[in-house]
């Protein structure tokens, strides 16, 4: 993973959402980016990404947020979706025990593929359905802590916990990046492909000659 401060002092981070089908990954992203919720989201077959700009105490941060397919067989398409990620949000549905087990699998896979450099959040989504909860919050938090992740209760429906989660994740990614910056300034890997998304680098609209 490269350090990610572009020449304008902005951090460019890639964040990926992973988790079983129908736990609410797309809903979480749309709530965060567009502050919208509707129950008509379609299942995600083809991963896509959206971007968000943040400013945390004067530091400019560009997030490229990747929403992925939940159905297992689409993972056969390989790890392109999480390759080079700086952060990962593993989402489960608090009313679905299996979806929490899937999170544990993802933790293993991410640690194997990306090591400890990747900052991980675990989101217990659909927290508005507290009455149907089957995954204990305590257990989930304890698990998260044991694997160096942070646990959040979220509800895309009621806009709960999502902003904080992304904010916290961003702060942790900045810390990691700054440590890397100091520690291994000369060890910058050449093959890394961090997406640089910065309006200053976007090409002018075609046909615009000013």
């Amino acid at each position: 993973m490269s350090s990610n401060q572009g020449n304008l002092g902005a951090f460019n981070f890639k964040v990926v959402l992973l988790g079983e089908g129908c736990v609410g990954k797309t809903s979480v992203v749309l709530r965060y980016i567009e502050d919208k919720f509707n129950d008509k989201h379609i299942s995600t077959i083809q991963a896509s990404f959206l971007t968000k700009k943040l400013n945390i105490s004067g530091k400019r941060i560009n997030l490229a947020i990747w929403d992925t397919a939940g159905q297992e067989r689409f993972h056969a398409l390989g790890p392109i979706y999480y390759r080079d990620s700086h952060g990962a949000i593993l989402v489960y549905d608090i009313t679905d025990e299996d979806s929490f087990q899937k999170v544990k699998n993802w933790v293993k896979e991410l640690r194997k593929m990306l090591g400890t450099r990747v900052c991980v959040c675990i989101a217990g989504n659909k927290a508005d359905l507290e009455r149907d909860r089957v995954v204990s919050r305590e257990e989930a938090s304890r698990y998260a802590e044991s694997v160096g992740a942070k646990h959040y209760d979220t509800s895309a429906k009621q806009n709960h916990g999502i902003e904080e989660m992304f904010l916290d994740l961003s702060q942790r990614m900045v810390e990691v990046a700054e440590q890397n910056e100091q520690g291994q300034a000369q060890l910058r890997p050449s093959g890394s492909t961090v997406q640089v998304i910065d309006d200053s680098e976007k090409p002018e609209k075609t046909g615009c000659c000013s």
Binding site: Q46, L77, I80
Partner: peptide, 19 residues
């Protein structure tokens, strides 16, 4: 640009262009 082709066309193939 180093762009992974299948990020663009998965749905073409899986849905046979439906939707």
């Amino acid at each position: 640009q180093g762009i992974a082709w299948n990020l663009l066309v998965t749905r073409w193939h899986v849905c046979l262009y439906a939707d």
